[in-house]
Amino acid sequence: MLKQFSIAAKNATRLPYMMAARVVRPSAFTPMRFTRFVSTGSPLTKEDVLARTVSVLKSFDLKNSGDKIGLNTQFTKDLGMDSLDYNDALVALEEEFDVVFDDKSANEIKTVGETVNYVLKNYLPEQQDLDREVR
């Protein structure tokens, strides 16, 4: 630490006057804005969710792993999953995003896009999170 400081100090003294004068200062003082990220709602974007979903799905042993996974990819048709594989994938996504797919929608979901939408709709930001056991 000390060494670094002394080097920095040396460099500072070596700065030519011209450069020091060219430093641009903001004309008015702008106060820092403290934003509460919690109250801004879900910080997840659709692309974000899709990217994470794809990375989770890639961790599975997929039949057609070479294909690109998009919003319209179907679990059973395109990824070659059977019903149990598909439920494994859903639970893996639940763990990734900390949401719970209710039984009705879990049985109805066919495509990756539908899971993404479900996650976006049901995702709770960190601070509003209840006790995990309760959820």
């Binding site: 149990l84 439920n87 639970v91 797919f101």
Partner: peptide
């Protein structure tokens, strides 16, 4: 029956 079974499976895995 199939749907109930899948729900049970999901509950187990979860």
């Amino acid at each position: 029956m199939r749907i109930r079974m899948l729900n049970l499976y999901r509950r187990y895995i979860r």
